[in-house]
Amino acid sequence: MIKRGLFKNPKNQLEGNPKLSRTPAPCVADEMCVTCPSCKKTILTSELSENLSVCQTCGYHFRINARQRINIISDANTFCEIDQDMISQNRIDFPEYDKKLKNARLDSAEKDAVVCGTCKIGGYDCCLFVMEPYFMMGSMGIVVGEKITRLFEMATEKSLPVVGFTVSGGARMQEGILSLMQMAKTSGAVKRHNDAGNLYIGVLTDPTTGGVTASFATEGDIVVAEPSALIGFAGPRVIEQTIRQKLPQGFQRAEFLLEKGFLDAIVDRREQKKYLVRLLYLHEKAEQA
């Protein structure tokens, strides 16, 4: 015999208090709050941006775009962009690349995956490059390679330090071998800047992988990273497919790289400017002081 009510929705404490759910929720539009993917806490976007897009509760670093980083790092109204009009072309007639580029421009409101320029950081003149995660995940094609190379060449000529923020999926497949050559080209420019006695500080952010890790990202005199940033040569999925086993927790995260000796420090986004200014101060050349 079937008991009555068996198919009625049972109520228990898991479903919360129906009375409570009827009380009017605070009137917050969806776009005004986000849930932290790490601690699941709901954060008001206004609070989040005040805190440089870092979760106040657990310190999770939200992804931010290049312009936001430039605002955080450079002194107010000192950033002067260079090469802002360079755009990528479909040099090897790669399928769907034109469409991808168009979408990337719309997604990021940038012309390509890196923003370069000069600025002051704590009063120190610097060359700054910041990669753009919303443009094809910061992948490096000819334009990215050329802009980074020009920035280092300019910095070498003017004897200026370079500060660079990386975020990248690696070399851009859609430009074929020409993308790979950008690794050699940028490395050459970094080397010349280095040999002339200039400072280069790299800040690796989530994620920095592939051909960018295997070129200018890890060539700094000082290399630091944001907390928990994924940093590696091969992506975790590719490694798992190759070795057919699960990767350990925390593998390729910034903390792991620090332990293995590949980073100088992990620096919270809220401390980054202060940290950079301190390093620039410590490298101040005698004649400038």
Binding site: V190, A214, S215, T218, T242
Partner: peptide, 24 residues
């Protein structure tokens, strides 16, 4: 090679260093 040991010992950094040093 992409594997655990290769990443632990800095595959990206090793390649990057060769690119820089070979150029000069």
């Amino acid at each position: 090679f992409c594997g655990i040991g290769a990443e632990e010992r800095g595959q990206g950094q090793a390649i990057a260093e060769n690119l820089m040093e070979m150029m000069a």
